[in-house]
Design a binder for these strands. Sequence first.
DNA 1: ACCTGAACACCGTTCAAGT
DNA 2: ACCTGAACACCGTTCAAGT
Lengths: 247, 247
Amino acid sequence: MTYTLSSINSQEGGGLAQVPKDRQQRSVPRPRLNRETVLRAGVELADQVGIEGFTMRTLSQELGVVPMALYKHVANKQELLEGMVDLVWNEVTEPDAGRGWKQGVRDRSVSLRDALIRHRWAVGLMEAAGRPGPENLRQHNAMLGCLRQGGFSFRTTVHVMSLLDAYVYGFALQQKTLSFETPEESAASAAATHDAESAETAARYPYLLEVVAELAKEGYDYDAEFTVGLDLLLDGVEALRGSWRSA
Amino acid sequence: MTYTLSSINSQEGGGLAQVPKDRQQRSVPRPRLNRETVLRAGVELADQVGIEGFTMRTLSQELGVVPMALYKHVANKQELLEGMVDLVWNEVTEPDAGRGWKQGVRDRSVSLRDALIRHRWAVGLMEAAGRPGPENLRQHNAMLGCLRQGGFSFRTTVHVMSLLDAYVYGFALQQKTLSFETPEESAASAAATHDAESAETAARYPYLLEVVAELAKEGYDYDAEFTVGLDLLLDGVEALRGSWRSA
DNA sequence: ACCTGAACACCGTTCAAGT
DNA sequence: ACCTGAACACCGTTCAAGT
């Protein structure tokens, strides 16, 4: 989770203002930039600062280079982000059709969700407008193949993939916004938020208050939550194998 | 869908460069700004230009005012967006517990999804970090109440709401990125994208190609797709009423 | 109480120039 | 082939000033 970026940071970012420019240049024998290095550094930076802090200028600074240098390796910021997203897709394990469609699809859904948690900035970009990258294509192809080989009709296969991905994306989206780390912090934060408004709020939103109080006591486990919902979905999907619209 | 903004646009935006400043000021007897007007204009503008084209400066221009004037009514852009999101929550119909939990929850899920389609910029912001607005609180409280009154245990209620919202958000997220309007355009666009790469791609992603070809022939109905998946979820949820973990 | 003008510290990106 | 410097047209936002 903590890559090499922080060390680069303390070397360059910290001392950058003090060190003369040509000195700074030579002190870190920076390897020649290429597309791959730029994309990987982009992922690292976005992981650390989030999408709103991610700029061409900060990225170039991390790489010890002037902002314009990046444009030799990526067309523009949009295309850079697309490349970064495909790097995230590359981290997702393909479904293994040999283990059966259900296990294969389950594994890949968990893997996708894990990747989205590691790279919280990516959720809104995974299915974004631009041309899908090769890893994206490979991944979706494998998913479709797993379901087709599992005996799902063509039409149902498309439905199921859309349904499962919607759940994974949506869950990651919900979890992304919750910035606290542990369930305990989560509960405490929720309680604190609403306690401040106290009496009036309690009267207006009784069910909400019940939840906050209860969660404050017991905590909330997102990981367990996700897999329970996923299995519910998979069971539902299994029931319609061969029965959804045109079989 | 097409509000009054376009007419304002043609009045002010179009002639703004030609008309002298004081003249332009008086020609449109602009009513006094307040928080409500700013937020509503914000929603309209974001609907039209998307979140990336939505700036304080363009919004102020739409309102016939200098950018700084907005800061009398909203603290900053972040707080403005939060207010706009709560306006979207206000469009969502509360679940009617009287019709039974299943119908109530279904109606509100469809309504939420419709709102997210009308305001595509909102998906990533609905559960965003800031303080949830009053409409957001009211909405979630009503959803919880509907499920509790439907006989769901406290714990299960939380799970179900999280599961359903994840699906709605995720589906809207998928649909958001597809910018084409009709299913036919959707299919054509998909086909065109992959046709360009032709032979090599066909060999590498056979299942994906199958989908593209098939969808090009038959089209793809997102609306039907959404409700089918939703009903699958609701049936699955019904089965675990009173049985999920602590009943 | 509400709006404005000028200014600041940022953005992404272009272009011509350096090595 | 790769990187740089200077510049352009934008951002959000502050502050002092106007009415």
